[in-house]
């Protein structure tokens, strides 16, 4: 019971933080609030018994992604968001509300939160819980599934991470090019061609 109450309160906090993030026009404040958002979600993952996920979210969301966003903020030197009038809030609000209502209609058929007889908990999950220890000798089922049963999937994920690292290196690894100067004629030439 106490789990459920903590769950409800933390989810409400999460929703409030999300609204605060999009209402703030100061990007620094938004990024720090996003760090709080990640920390709250890590806490919630603990409440929902997903310890490994909570671990990762606390280190990644509250640590590394906040730092990367702050570094980007330093590099772009743009601390305040400019609210333009080109975007009509009513149109996007309407799109979002209609999509949300359709999704809420979809949830009416989902089995309730924490239902042990839900279809998601019946099939392959039971096999993992019953056989992970005798077959792999690893008490942490998440590790057993991650590295052994779904090893090929994880190999793909590692390859994706590696590719993202290579791509960031390609984009930011070289010397910065300064636009509108003669130090890098290639870009300026392309600009002129685009304008003509």
């Amino acid at each position: 019971m106490i789990d459920l109450i903590i769950n409800i309160i933390l989810l409400a906090f999460l929703a409030i933080t999300a609204v605060a993030i999009i209402r703030s026009t100061n990007l620094f404040a938004s990024i720090m609030l996003f760090g709080i958002f990640s920390l709250l979600s890590a806490t919630l993952f603990v409440v929902m018994d997903a310890l490994d996920v909570a671990f990762t979210e606390a280190a990644v969301g509250a640590g590394i992604s906040t730092i990367l966003m702050l570094t980007t903020l330093v590099l772009t030197k743009n601390h305040n968001e400019k609210r333009s009038h080109a975007h009509r809030p009513w149109l996007s609000l309407a799109v979002v509300i209609i999509t949300g209502m359709v999704l809420v209609y979809g949830t009416l058929d989902i089995p309730g939160f924490g239902d042990p007889a839900a279809p998601a908990n019946m099939h392959v999950a039971q096999y993992y819980i019953n056989n992970a220890l005798p077959e792999t000798g690893v008490p942490n089922i998440v590790t057993a599934v991650l590295a052994s049963y779904r090893g090929f999937d994880t190999l793909g994920e590692v390859a994706v991470i590696f590719t993202a690292g290579v791509a960031v290196l390609l984009l930011l690894g070289g010397k910065p090019s300064i636009p509108n100067s003669n130090s890098n004629p290639g870009i300026n030439k392309k600009r002129e061609e685009d304008e003509t």
């Binding site: 989810l11 929703a15 949300g100 809420v104 939160f113």
Partner: peptide, 28 residues
Amino acid sequence: ISHYNYWIVIFLMMVGLYTVINRGNLIK
């Protein structure tokens, strides 16, 4: 109570979608 989680999930999803559609700042 049993569907509260999913509704908050949808709310967060829509907040994210709204930000992507409506805000012009790329970091946002």
